[in-house]
Design a protein around this nucleic acid. Structure first.
Length: 439
RNA sequence: CGGGGCGUAGCGCAGCCUGGUAGCGCAUCUGCUUUGGGAGCAGAGGGUCGCAAGUUCGAAUCUUGCCGCCCCGACCA
């Protein structure tokens, strides 16, 4: 992409509405534009990152055996009356009436819809286990939206729903999501720690929030230090036998503020193992059994010929929130530092002197070669001054920059810069180009 | 939903207390110069001061109502 033909409205000054660093940077780097409280338009660069995050989530869901569907944003109130939640949900649910005076709502979640889909087609235990997910815009009319996309009213969420014949099988479904979450957050360069969450009236031990640690996190969290550095199991696991991976990570103490038990924390960890930090919730998995399947009559016939409600669980990832969370966890005073897996461009090609024959020729050659190699390049051929180009590239957080200037080029050299480390190396044009082409 | 704050050019702000021709920086446009860390000089364009009503000879400024946005708290992916 040639920058002069792209749409990248960066801001030198921070809009006064923004308070936390990720929100400020998202506005300054031209990722989003606020349209109303908690409602944002996604500009080209923000959209690219959003799509990359979405794709990682999709790939890891598929790997874990979930199947993608797409459910509507507008839902029938009648379904929610069946589950009993229409009246329970309160003011956070945006209620809408159509021209026929039918009560609709903009879905804040999709348990009712997915249960309705399930019960329409599935009757037998032979069709189970099943896990259906979708990545869709949700709306919760928060009283007080804040922190940019971290707590908007409209947000993109991946929500998966598992259906099983019994609790033992449901537990396996839960474990698959547990491991899938560890894997997908790691792919985004995040260290996510699963923490015991409130299971509400259902009870049991099957609910975890996935928390990433960041100084500006919304809640206080407490956990065993080792959990933070424990890597994800990775894709090559036995997806039917994940108990070991899950137990290893749930054995150590980890709790959010609401679930925290200081006495137990001190009992189960030594002083030097204790970590108390701020955290951002980026995922939540939950087993809730028959909560929806029973009132909505999503019944399954088992091998014994007996009909019983499906055992269900739901698994959410805040896709749009993740942009904010990643930035909170990865930035410096110059701007965003995108992990390569979610970066909007693989690299920036900076022409320091457009109009200079040698610079133009070298840049065009590099641009063509990199594109041919499948690299997504942002080619800065604007006539801004070098300082402005560097500052902008750093602000938007592109992982690598190839800098082509007249002085270096006279020697046949160009520069390669790493956004995260700030390291700069000068080398021959061809060798830098080869290195970037090979990745 | 309780408490607080703010709406003045695209962005950041001053002016308001004490009513009298709407300003500054950045950005934008033109010209010249400049070209390895958000350039310099000269010039230009851009505002029914959130909306409405009221007070007044006269309202960005005072009064009332409404709308929007932000912050703290309670609540949530």
């Amino acid at each position: 992409m040639r920058l002069s033909r792209y749409f990248l409205p960066t801001l030198k000054e921070t809009p006064s509405d923004a308070q936390i660093v990720s929100h400020k940077l998202m506005l300054r780097a031209g990722l989003i534009k606020q349209e109303a409280a908690g409602i944002y338009a996604w500009l080209p660069l923000g959209l690219k990152v959003l799509k990359k995050i979405e794709q990682i989530v999709r790939e890891e869901m598929n790997r874990a055996g979930a199947v993608e569907i797409l459910m509507p944003t507008l839902q029938l109130a009648d379904l929610w009356r069946e589950s009993g939640r229409y009246d329970d949900y309160g003011q956070e649910m945006l209620r809408i009436t159509d021209r026929h005076k039918r009560d609709l709502l903009y879905g804040p979640t999709a348990e009712e819809v997915v249960t309705d889909i399930f019960r329409a087609f599935v009757r037998s235990y032979r069709d189970l286990p099943m896990n259906l997910y979708n990545i869709q815009w949700k709306f919760r009319d928060e009283v007080r939206p804040r922190f940019g996309v971290m707590r908007g009213r409209e947000f993109l969420m991946k929500d998966a729903y598992s259906f099983d014949i019994d609790e033992a099988s449901a537990r396996k479904a839960y474990n698959r999501m547990f491991v899938a979450y560890l894997n997908l957050f790691e792919r985004m360069g995040l260290k996510a720690v699963p923490m015991r969450a409130d299971t509400g009236p259902i009870g049991g031990d099957l609910s975890h929030e996935f928390i990433i640690l960041a100084d500006t996190g919304e809640s206080q969290v407490f956990c065993h230090k080792d959990l933070v550095e424990m890597g994800a199991p990775g894709p090559d696991v036995d997806w039917d036998n994940l108990e070991g991976h899950v137990e290893k990570r749930t054995a150590l103490y980890a709790a959010t503020e609401e679930m925290h038990d200081q006495a137990r924390f001190e009992r189960e960890t030594s002083t030097d193992q204790r970590l108390s930090a701020r955290g951002i919730e980026v995922g939540h998995i939950f087993y809730f059994g028959e909560k929806y399947s029973r009132p909505m009559k999503a019944m399954i016939t088992g091998p014994d010929g007996v009909e019983r409600p499906a055992q269900m669980g739901s698994y959410g990832v805040g896709v749009s929130r993740l942009l904010g969370a990643i930035i909170e966890a990865s930035h410096d005073d110059k701007g965003i530092i995108w992990p390569e897996s979610v970066a909007p461009f693989d690299l920036a090609l900076i022409n320091l002197r457009p109009g200079d024959e040698a610079c133009d020729a070298a840049c065009e050659k590099a641009y063509a070669a990199l594109q041919a190699a499948g690299r997504d390049v942002l080619y800065d051929e604007t006539d801004d001054r070098p300082g402005a180009k560097f500052a902008r590239t750093e602000l938007v957080g592109i992982p690598w920059s190839m800098v082509v200037g007249p002085k270096g080029l006279a020697e046949g050299n160009v520069e390669l810069r790493n956004r995260r480390t700030g390291e700069t190396s000068t080398a021959a044009f061809d060798s830098v180009l080869d290195g970037l082409i090979k990745g």
